[in-house]
Design a binder for these strands. Structure first.
Lengths: 336, 336
DNA sequence: GTGAAGAATTGAAAGGTTTCAACTGAGGCG
DNA sequence: CGCCTCAGTTGAAACCTTTCAATTCTTCAC
């Protein structure tokens, strides 16, 4: 049924080696035989068996991006950046969605290592897992995307989330807010911790203590959780209720915003809102959303470049690159 | 460097066959030797070589979903449904983003076939391409997602887009609109054609001719294109300008809406808007968006079930399943 | 017409796993 | 005590390709 190089060789009247050369070193084959072999290949519908090739040749033509949350537009933009860089080379990119679950992340990493992919891009659920060291120690390069990791054991590309949190909070202080909610969670997510830390730092610099930043913990960074956060805020007596909310990402902010608009809480009048990521929908929201913008495409492009270098360049050295975010002020945090 | 079954066998003092049995038929091995072999495996950091396994065993433990547009939330929800079904089995799912480009789709399909994946889920750029017949003819099952295809050569799962277009247009007629824009394109996208056809059919049923549906062609189904469509609408003299717009998807609708709000066109007062897909952001928009809802998760789940059946069940028969959409009426098309 | 150099082709070995028929040894039964 | 059975184990063959040293063919200079 399945036609292999052997069949091609037989049908074209050449040896196995020649067929292989047509595939991998066309220059070594005379134009005439090459044409003949290629003709036979299309006639017989030959599809090279990548498993066999990989087994023998060692290399693989595949990269993978294990993404934290495929339904978050931020990550799909990062992925687009990665694809831009990968597309140039003769490689393909597979995406895997860990969906914020450590077991799924582990499972995908295991599978990818078994497949002997050329390299892995990873936005980790568990950045400190020793599994990463094991895998790269065994020869599958891993580049960390949108995170950093203790020890310079891997290449990484990240945006300064502490700075981002700081920018957002400074913006709100500047707008006169002094009772501010930080909406985000779970705290296991590094991005959330860093953004929160940045906000606290800005607060401290302004001479205010931690009590000015009310933490509203969510179980995920999703629109639904944002809506729930709105209800929790609404439950706080007006005198103590925050006048502004800094959300750990735009999905939360959009959910929060939507619920506020629905229940008649004026934005930014009763509650100013700042999001994070500046996804495409942020500007299209009921009240255009102030947000912290990150260079998403460049994040992806750079990560892919680093991985490709690690794959191709024998004297590669690990690099940790950090980009700087900036704040895009819009209606949702306009001065009252 | 790389440790293989041979090394394990040597270290554990058993034969190759026994190591393989520990991996694939643990029941055939006595508990004692199994424990010993497994211990050695973890000690030595053994990672089975999937290429070799696949080469010998023929089968593969991988499915792939080639998605039309990874940044469209509609498709990420479909993917989530697929993953739900796949997760139960001992399989992994890779995602590939064709990004609406035929060359990328072809390239991914080629690669996946070379990898000998167990099966492919595909939302096609080119549903009628003969490549699909070739691939499935050579033994890699393909299930078409969110499209149908002429001839019952493949399983497919789709939503009735003609009906959806009809529902949307009937809704607008019902709201008293008689000059309506259809915003969408390019016409090469089947979903766009079907939704447009449904709208035309509804128009005909109402005794109105085609001139009542102004076609505004876009080059993609994206937020940016939606904004541009708004500008084109604005360029039409008020007397002839449509009073309502039916968008081929929500991204267009959100862009259109955003631009309208920005430039002071009242929605729904000056322009009623209906979107399509009912993505999560639709309800959170500046003006909550009326949209045609599709059973996204179920679409994915069902597609995966069909593929798994085709993979596992020797006397599988192809099925074409069509779901029914419904309209969610919100603010953006409220009666004037 | 000969020899050398270079181009094109060949065929066997190798890569890491699974499969399967054959083998071993232990336990049960007469 | 010998025979049979059966669970557990073995080792060679097979999967399909690439690689590379060896071989044959072609061309060209003298």
């Amino acid at each position: 049924m399945a036609v292999g190089v052997k069949d091609i060789a037989l049908a074209a009247g050449v040896s196995l080696g020649t067929v292989s050369n047509v595939l991998n070193h066309p220059d070594r084959v005379s134009p005439r035989t090459r044409a003949r072999v290629e003709q036979v290949m299309t006639d017989l519908g030959f599809v090279p068996n990548e498993s066999a090739r990989q087994l023998r040749a060692g290399r693989s033509r595949t990269l993978a991006y294990v993404v934290l949350d495929a339904s978050n537009p931020f990550f799909t933009d990062v992925a687009r950046g990665i694809e831009e860089s990968v597309a140039a080379r003769d490689l393909s990119l597979f995406m895997c969605n860990s969906d914020n679950r450590a077991d799924r992340e582990r499972n995908y990493l295991k599978r990818l290592e078994e497949q002997r992919v050329a390299g892995v891009l990873l936005t980790p659920v568990e950045p400190e897992s020793s599994l990463l060291d094991q895998i790269s120690g065994r020869g599958t390069p891993i580049v960390i995307v949108d995170r950093t990791r203790a020890g310079n054991t891997h290449c990484s590309v990240a945006v300064d989330d502490v700075l981002g949190g700081r920018l957002a909070l400074e913006h709100l202080l500047d707008r006169g807010h002094e009772r501010i909610a930080f909406v985000g969670g779970p705290a296991t997510i590094g991005q959330v911790r860093d953004r929160h830390a940045g906000a606290l730092a800005a607060l401290a610099d302004a001479g205010l203590d931690e009590s000015h930043l009310l933490r509203i913990d969510t179980s995920a960074l999703s629109v639904g959780e944002g809506r729930q956060a709105a209800q929790r805020l609404a439950g706080i007596p007006r005198s103590r209720r925050p006048t502004a909310a800094l959300c750990a990402n735009d999905l939360l902010a959009l959910g929060l915003l939507q619920q506020c608009v629905t229940t008649g809480v004026a934005v930014p009048g009763d509650l100013a809102i700042v999001g994070y990521d500046d996804i495409e929908y942020a500007g299209a929201a009921a009240v255009p959303l102030t947000s912290v913008r990150q260079p998403r495409l460049q994040l992806g492009r750079t990560a892919a470049e680093l991985l490709l270098d690690e794959v191709e360049n024998p004297d590669h050295t690990h690099q940790q690159i950090t980009f700087t975010p900036d704040l895009v002020a819009r209606e949702s945090s306009r001065r009252a």
